[in-house]
Structures are given as structure tokens and as C-alpha cells.
């Protein structure tokens, strides 16, 4: 395993990768070199596994609440889910000025799912990787949002929705026109406009994914650095840092949700 601090940190920042190795076929990568050789045709088992686990936890909890939903006095779970729903619904109502039954459930899914994925950061950095190591996994990184694949996967979905609704509401012509004739409404500036607008369009998913990834990754690195201290001194730093994440974790989930709503709201606005 890890001997020097650098190795320890690198080890903790490496995902458990399963992929197609040019020489060895489909295997679990045991070294960073193997991961590199696999290239794109590989899967981060830990990221995907924990993402799905958190998503299923979210849907299971909320489905349970939905099944027992009644007009009687609500219980704890009922209150919790309804609080989330009311919060998300209010945000959507304030931000999204259109009628689309997808937006609110989408926002709820993003908020709760990202929150749950982020909250895996509260698990001490060595516990689950240590357990995984005992089970034979060479690497294990449990926070899916500290993996760019996780956050870009989300923002890719949002990007597809932005394109879909832009074209659905404005039509292919309308959407192209919007890209070509804003901000400068003159035919000579069409290439410039297109350049600007396409960058602006691509910046949306990029900023969504990078903001979440950057925050979570940086926080994770700091937790790993704190874990290098002697065990009796760690609490001095990691307790305040974990408490600080009570703010960071929901905030990042909230920002991701709000920006998604804002982008989709813009996609629904027809300027013509």
C-alpha cells in the first residue's frame, strides 16, 4: 500500500478502475500505469457503485414516503421528504418561468442525489478504502462527486436537456438563429456570435461539473492531508473541516440544482 505521504495521497485519489487492458483484457487495474493504458474504455467501479447506491437510497426513501403519503398527521420521513419537495418546488417556482413537469422532479433528484453523494465525504477517509482493501480492492475512492466522471456525467445529462428543450421550444431554426444573431444582430458578425455563443453554451455544463468537482476534490484532498497527521492530533483539524462541510455539502448540491434550473429556464425562453 502507501508508504510515503505522496504515495498515500496518490493512492487515496485513485479510483477503482475496471477496464479493457490492451494486453491483459478486462481486468481491475492494480497500478496507475494500467489505468492509463486502459484509456477511455474503463469504468470507475467505486464512483459508479456509490453513485447508484446513493441514488437508490434517495429513491427508496422518497418512494417509501410517497407510498405512505396520506393526509393524516405526517411522520418524520414524511416531513423530511415534504420539506425537501417544498424547498425544491419553491426554488423552481421562483427561478423557472415556464411549464414543464420535468423540471421540479429533475431538480429534486439533483439536489438530494448530489447531497447524498457529497455527504460521503463525512465518512473518514480511511474507513471504507481500508475495508475495500481487506476485500482485495487495490484502490477505493468513495465520493463520486470528487471524481470528474461523476460530475461530468451529471452535467452531460443537463447539457442534453438544455439542447433538447432549446430545440423543442425554439425549433432548430430558432435555436440556430439565437446562436448566430446574439449578442450582435448583424449578418457580418455571425461567425463571431456563433463562436461566442457556442463557448457560452459549452461553458454551462463545464462550469456545472467543474464547480462541484473542484469543491469536492479540494475538500477531499484536505481530509486526506489531515489524515497524514498522527491519529491523536487529527481531530483538531478534521472536526472543524467536517463541520465546515455541513455548509459546503448542501451548498454545492443547491448550486448545482439552481444552475440547472436557470440553464433550463433560459433554454425555454424564446426571444423571438
Amino acid at each position: 500500500m502507501a508508504n510515503t505521504p505522496v504515495e498515500y495521497i496518490q493512492h487515496h485519489l485513485q479510483n477503482l478502475v475496471f477496464g479493457s487492458h490492451p494486453e491483459k483484457g478486462w481486468i481491475i487495474a492494480h497500478t496507475p500505469e494500467e489505468v492509463k493504458q486502459m484509456g477511455f474504455w474503463s469504468v470507475n467501479l467505486d464512483t459508479l457503485g456509490w453513485s447508484i447506491a446513493m441514488g437508490v437510497l434517495f429513491l427508496w426513501l422518497f418512494r417509501k414516503a410517497a407510498l405512505s403519503a396520506s393526509t393524516k398527521v405526517p411522520g418524520f420521513l414524511q416531513n423530511l421528504t415534504e420539506m425537501c419537495i417544498e424547498f425544491v418546488e419553491g426554488t423552481v417556482r421562483d427561478t423557472f418561468h415556464g411549464r414543464n413537469p420535468l423540471i421540479a422532479p429533475l431538480a429534486l433528484t439533483i439536489f438530494v442525489w448530489v447531497f447524498l453523494m457529497n455527504s460521503l465525504k463525512w465518512v473518514p477517509v480511511d474507513i471504507i478504502p481500508g475495508l475495500a482493501h481487506l476485500l482485495g480492492a487495490p484502490y477505493f475512492k468513495i465520493v463520486p462527486t470528487a471524481d470528474p466522471n461523476g460530475t461530468f456525467g451529471l452535467s452531460l445529462g443537463v447539457f442534453v436537456l438544455i439542447l433538447f428543450y432549446s430545440i423543442k421550444i425554439k425549433g432548430v431554426g430558432g435555436f440556430t438563429k439565437e446562436l448566430a444573431f446574439t449578442p450582435f444582430n448583424h449578418w457580418a458578425l455571425v461567425p463571431f456570435n456563433l463562436f461566442l455563443e457556442i463557448i457560452g453554451l459549452l461553458a454551462k455544463p463545464l462550469s456545472l461539473a467543474l464547480r462541484l468537482f473542484g469543491n469536492m476534490y479540494a475538500g477531499e484532498v484536505v481530509f486526506i492531508l489531515i489524515a497524514l497527521l498522527p491519529f491523536w492530533a487529527q481531530w483538531v483539524l478534521n472536526v472543524p473541516w467536517a463541520i465546515f462541510h455541513i455548509l459546503v455539502i448542501p451548498l454545492q448540491a443547491f448550486i448545482f440544482m439552481v444552475l440547472t434550473i436557470v440553464y433550463l429556464s433560459a433554454a425555454h425562453e424564446d426571444h423571438h
Binding site: V17, W41, I52, W113, P148, N149, G150, G153
Partner: peptide
């Protein structure tokens, strides 16, 4: 940053 198929896996799960 090591981008791979996880990206699409995540998108599908999201959907």
C-alpha cells in the same frame, strides 16, 4: 483527470 466510460454510466444512472 482520467475520463472514461463512467461518464456515460453516470449520465444513464442520472436519467
Amino acid at each position: 483527470m482520467n475520463m472514461n466510460l463512467t461518464l456515460f454510466g453516470q449520465t444513464i444512472a442520472f436519467a
